[in-house]
């Protein structure tokens, strides 16, 4: 069985426990693909460079990053650059033969580039052009399977490879949760999403109403009703993984001692 583990990027989730757990699973002969984001680290670096991150609100009320050309450069520096290199080296320090890849490498994660977004600014609806984002439609599963077959542990991040309407390709932003979902779907792998909350609460004020796993769209619907705020993105991603071919999606607490092992074993 292959397991795709989505870990946080920089600040939100300390990956140390997660990396040790990946090492344990790999040691046991499990095939693992690690997927990570790192949005807050992109903002930190933009600020260190004296630039302001740009966030826009869509008419539907979703707040998201607007990735202009300069932001895309910094995105490349932080995600496939610093974070991916450090995570890859961190896993190697634990004896895992990790290999870092972005969605650009070997066309690992591809889809249409979206260069315009609808936004609401000062109460006005607008079309904002020059965005570097994309919608994932394809995953190069062969590349991952070849590497897994040779006992490597791929460490995957965004950007993805965006196909321009007029031909040609360019690196573009994509949500790392959805990238993880797409990878899990393509590999028919279990998806374990680590976050700093231990799952989704049916009643947000009552920790005993934890809903943690779903293995079919019906089970997900229960979670979807309960999910709020940024968790809706995780639920969207979970749905995409299940409909893509994943047998199971687990949202697990990154701060547990063996978060992935517990999740794969069905503990909680």
């Amino acid at each position: 069985m292959t397991t795709v583990v989505k870990i946080g990027g920089a600040r939100a989730v300390d990956p140390a426990g997660a990396l040790a757990d990946v090492a344990r699973l790999v040691e046991q002969g499990e095939q693992v693909v690690v997927v990570h984001g790192g949005s807050t680290a992109v903002d930190d670096t933009l600020e260190a460079l004296g630039e302001e991150p740009t966030y826009v609100e869509t008419p539907g009320g979703v707040v998201g990053r607007f990735t202009d050309e300069r932001t895309m450069e910094v995105f490349e520096m932080v995600l496939p650059g610093k974070l991916n290199t450090d995570l890859t080296a961190g896993l190697q320090n634990q004896g895992v033969d990790a290999i870092g890849l972005s969605g650009v490498d070997g066309g690992l994660i591809t889809g249409r580039r979206k260069s315009a977004v609808r936004v609401v600014e000062d109460g006005k609806k607008k079309i904002k052009r020059g965005d570097h984002s994309g919608k994932i439609t394809d995953v190069n599963a062969d590349l991952l399977e070849t590497l897994l077959g040779d006992d490597y542990t791929p460490v995957v991040t965004v950007p993805m490879l965006g196909e321009e309407k007029e031909g040609g390709v360019t690196p573009v932003n994509a949500d790392a949760d959805r990238a993880a979902a797409a990878v899990a779907g393509a590999l028919d792998a279990t998806l374990v999403v680590l976050t700093d909350v231990p799952g989704i609460l049916a009643d947000p004020d009552d920790e005993t109403t934890l809903i943690e796993r779903a293995d079919d769209p019906a089970g997900l619907e229960r979670i979807e009703d309960a999910a709020e705020g940024f968790m809706t993105k995780k639920v969207m991603a979970a749905k995409e993984a299940l409909s893509g071919g994943s047998p199971e999606v687990v949202v697990a607490d990154a701060n547990a001692e063996m978060p992935i092992t517990d999740a794969v074993d069905g503990g909680g």
């Binding site: 990027g9 984001g37 790192g38 949005s39 992109v42 869509t58 008419p59 539907g60 979703v62 998201g64 990053r65 990735t67 995105f75 995600l79 979206k114 315009a116 977004v117 609808r118 609806k125 079309i127 984002s133 994309g134 919608k135 965004v158 573009v172 932003n173 994509a174 949500d175 790392a176 993105k233």
Partner: peptide
């Protein structure tokens, strides 16, 4: 119809593109 302002002097309108709501990292 939703019309996008393509230019302001003089004002020029075109059909506003349909765009999916999506987001990145």
């Amino acid at each position: 119809a939703e019309l996008e302002v393509i230019d302001v002097e003089p004002p020029e309108l075109d059909k506003a593109p349909e765009l999916e709501e999506d987001w990145g990292e």
